[in-house]
């Protein structure tokens, strides 16, 4: 079974020549499969996942824990690669890449937003936002300018010199959003972005997401919470590693 999948992948034509859609697609996953070796047994985490996205879309992936949504997020975020299938992001085929190449794609294409904002406690808000630019080798002056700009965008102009423990949970998450945006990524990838926030703050963050999407940002949000998922314009469900289209949300 898995042999035939591998074989098919090896012989699949390049996107430019064979499949005209693949080249044009901004985001396209075809028959993505992921297995984990759990001792003797092989767990089939993602089963033939197909997913396509256009630029400017706002998608949420809704699924309970253990559904495979974290694994899917890792593959979308180029933290992990699929065992089989094809993944094209912004015209680049993500497969069989080494760690360094994956890191480069993460740096250029993806802005991560995690559940616990994951700020470095010793650094100021501004320095935290600068972090992705440091690894991209952006010169200090431009780095500072862009970080300030992004913090202003998320409404934290007056908190740039604060360290995370001097900020509220909502402010921390907004710093994290600024950090995700600062590299001007093509895709914002959020993993339970409101998971650690109270309802009111969570709503504010969702409002910010909607604004960003209105500005043309492409967003994929992974969540187990129906109430959060509905903020996206399009929802897909993942259960037991199988992805199904859930249609647009009520207020889309």
């Amino acid at each position: 079974m898995s042999m035939s999948i591998l074989k098919r992948r090896e012989h699949s034509p390049a996107p430019a020549s064979g499949n005209p859609d693949a080249k044009d697609a901004f985001f396209r996953m075809e028959k993505i499969n992921k297995f984990y070796q759990m001792g003797e047994e092989q767990a089939h985490i993602l089963k033939d996942v197909d997913l396509s996205l256009d630029r400017g879309e706002y998608l949420s992936v809704l699924g309970p824990s253990g559904s495979g949504k974290s694994t899917l997020m890792n593959i979308i975020g180029c933290l992990d690669v699929a065992n089989s299938g094809r993944y094209v992001l912004d015209g680049q085929v993500i497969e069989d890449l080494g760690e360094a190449e994956l890191a480069r794609i993460r740096s250029r294409e993806i802005g991560f937003i995690f559940q616990n904002s994951q700020l470095l406690p010793r650094l100021t808000a501004q320095k935290n936002v600068e972090l992705p630019l440091i690894y991209a080798g952006v010169p200090p002056r431009e780095r500072r300018r862009r970080a300030r700009e992004m913090l202003a965008r998320v409404g934290l102009s007056d908190r740039m010199g604060h360290t995370p423990n001097q900020l509220s949970g909502g402010q921390q998450q907004r710093v994290a959003i600024a950090r995700a945006l600062v590299g001007n990524p093509t895709l914002l990838l959020a993993d339970e972005p409101t998971g650690a926030l109270d309802q009111k703050t969570g709503r504010q963050v969702m409002g910010l997401f909607r604004e960003l999407n209105d500005e043309g940002r492409t967003i994929i949000m992974i969540t187990h919470d129906m109430n959060i998922a509905k903020y996206a314009r399009r929802v897909v469900h993942i259960i037991d590693g199988v992805l199904t289209e859930g249609g647009g949300t009520a207020d889309a």
């Binding site: 975020g77 933290l79 760690e99 360094a100 890191a103 480069r104 993460r106 740096s107 250029r108 991560f112 995690f114 994951q118 470095l120 972090l131 992705p132 690894y135 991209a136 950090r179 590299g183």
Partner: peptide, 11 residues
Amino acid sequence: LKKALGAIPWQ
């Protein structure tokens, strides 16, 4: 986190 933000292993 740093890796997710694009840090290469050698960095």
